[in-house]
Design a protein around this nucleic acid. Structure first.
Lengths: 224, 224
DNA sequence: TCCTTATTTTAGGCTTTCCTAAATTATTGT
DNA sequence: ACAATAATTTAGGAAAGCCTAAAATAAGGA
């Protein structure tokens, strides 16, 4: 009933999962940008995923995609692998923060359930990842997301902007023009301990920006 | 100059390496049997490998294949990954002997050089694998193979028959008909401590056979 | 040696996943 | 509302790996 899925399909589902929120579907273009391929290729794959039995995504022309229950299951399984691997590489093999992501992205597709179990046990069945993000449980329940101040985020962390303190209209304007609005997906690229600046990427615009503490202290983010 | 190679190509090169000896090239049919695909597919792939730049195999129609220096480098790198992974899974993650092989076969293609370094260090830069086989060094030198009596081999070990004591013509005949000749690749499947019998598989014939101590004591094997 | 049998290769095709170029559908500014 | 622009989809095609059936070659026995 559950046919195994290719590594590439896992990649697509993972991206769609991360691009999707309560009431927001993922668009062809966004997926293409994240995966660094052409939009046409994405349409192609999406249609195949929707035609699977059971379907892995819910697709309607020109209206983006969402995951079905089956698709989400696969995405969460992959995500669990990823998070456990990041922790494992850091804690047990001495990887630095910026090294773990790439390795985990390759390993997540090939480790067995047994490998997952073993490293989970060795790590003490953690519920939070290297960056504080929730790790889906073995039964693929996702713990509630945690609100964290952007100011406290560090390189490698990714999340969705949840709220912005709206005292200063000028600041709000500035944030708006840079896409730093609730719902925006961001990733911290670099941190400077000297001036407390954060170098971040705003996924929507595929744009990078450096923010000072005065700004980062006003923004709250759900870790992904 | 060194273009990266697909996982499947690594599989082919690994198999050709294991099927090749001093003066024996690997045949299309053998490779097909090991990889469980059709001979036609093997010819196809072999020809592509020979057409690479630089070529990874040395191919002449109807005369089997051998590895070029480049091809051997890739095979040894993969083999090193495999052996280190087996050791790692067993020693650090508590895998049993019969569980390590399959997992290592998948992981060997995706771990980075850094991962290799890290587990090698954690394991104390070992030179012998889980089954006593030589592990290619970081510079891809293969330690000299060790001659071991089949009688002393245990489940999971694999090797190539090197020599057979030829006192007993009847025994020789028996060994011959079962493919137990120098060059034959074998794998120990089971060991019975009560009667000292070994249950082994002869790869060439994809045939299994149980041998008593009287026989196993006469056969010498190079561990792979 | 010559014929039968076994092995290898060629030919033609299929599936995945990607591409570019062209066509279609949405969105946006006036 | 409607034209210009942006996003998406369709069409046609390529490379990697696999397959089966048929053709070519090698090996072995009388």
């Amino acid at each position: 009933m559950e046919s195994p899925v290719s590594e590439r399909v896992e990649d697509y589902l993972k991206v769609i999962y991360s691009l999707t929120t309560e009431d927001e579907r993922a668009s062809t273009g966004e997926i293409a940008r994240v995966l660094q391929i052409s939009p046409a290729s994405v349409t192609d794959m999406i249609q195949r995923l929707a035609a699977e039995n059971p379907p892995l995504v819910d697709y309607r022309k020109h209206q983006g995609v969402g995951l079905t229950e089956e698709g989400e299951k696969v995405a969460l399984e992959t995500l669990r692998h990823h998070r456990l691997l990041e922790l494992f590489l850091h804690e047990l093999l001495g990887y630095s923060w910026d090294q773990v992501h790439e390795e985990a992205d390759r390993l997540e597709h090939v480790i067995s359930e047994y490998f997952e179990e073993r490293i989970s046990e060795v790590l003490g069945d953690p519920e939070k990842g290297l960056y504080g993000e929730p790790i889906p449980s073995e039964e693929l329940h996702v713990p509630v997301r945690e609100d964290i101040c952007l100011h406290d985020m560090r390189p490698g962390q990714r999340g969705v902007i949840q709220s912005v303190k709206d005292d200063d209209p000028g600041l709000l304007q500035y944030l708006q023009t840079n896409g730093l609005v609730p719902g925006a997906r961001i990733e911290v690229l670099d941190y400077s301990p000297y001036d407390n600046n954060l170098h971040i990427r705003v996924k929507e615009h595929d744009q990078e920006i450096v923010l000072g503490a005065a700004v980062t202290a006003q923004i709250f983010v759900d870790l992904q």
